[in-house]
């Protein structure tokens, strides 16, 4: 006589449908609320309001004055620092080289921590150019390391109204 050993273990069926429903709902929610955000970074500047009654703090170093004049449509017409004018497509790179030459950071980073630059930009100038100027003044990247040039950068108060 042949005896068959049939396996009659009951299989427990966990209902998967509700879980899959919720999981898909979650997935749809995250896909709908997802947006690509480009990485952002900051230039930190400290600009207290100058007190009218207090005398200006004496500075050992002369303040560099960067003049940026606006042309038609908010474009940059002239970029000059004190009496030196920078021209050409790469004028911000020239400004950067000039600043590096002035500061002479061969002694290592931090040599220009007391140097101050005042950016005097025309009212109508596009803000993009001011950020380029701040980039040129504030430092440079070398071998992936950021080196600081000028920390104290300030903007002059708006001089021209609409």
């Amino acid at each position: 006589m042949k005896i068959r050993h049939t396996d009659h273990r009951d299989r427990i069926d966990v209902p998967m449908t509700p879980m899959i429903d919720i999981v898909f709902q979650l997935l749809v929610f995250f896909i709908m609320s997802f947006k690509i955000v480009l990485p952002e970074g900051d230039f930190n500047i400290r600009m207290p309001l100058p007190a009218n009654d207090a005398p200006a703090a004496p500075s050992e170093l002369p303040v560099f004055n960067l003049r940026m004049t606006a042309g038609e449509g908010g474009g940059l017409e002239q970029l000059s620092m004190d009496s030196r004018v920078f021209e050409g497509e790469d004028r911000f790179a020239k400004l950067h080289s000039y600043i590096r030459g002035l500061i002479d950071d061969s002694g290592g980073p931090g040599t220009a921590e007391d140097q101050e630059v005042e950016i005097n930009a025309d009212y109508d100038l596009h803000y993009d150019y001011v950020m380029r100027a701040i980039t040129a003044l504030s430092g440079y990247l070398e071998n992936g390391q950021r080196h600081q040039l000028i920390e104290k950068i300030r903007l002059t108060p708006p001089t021209e109204s609409e």
């Binding site: 930009a121 009212y123 100038l125 596009h126 993009d128 150019y129 021209e160």
Partner: peptide, 11 residues
Amino acid sequence: ADLRSRTGRVQ
């Protein structure tokens, strides 16, 4: 601030 905005407005 947007790159095309005027510097005076940022100031």
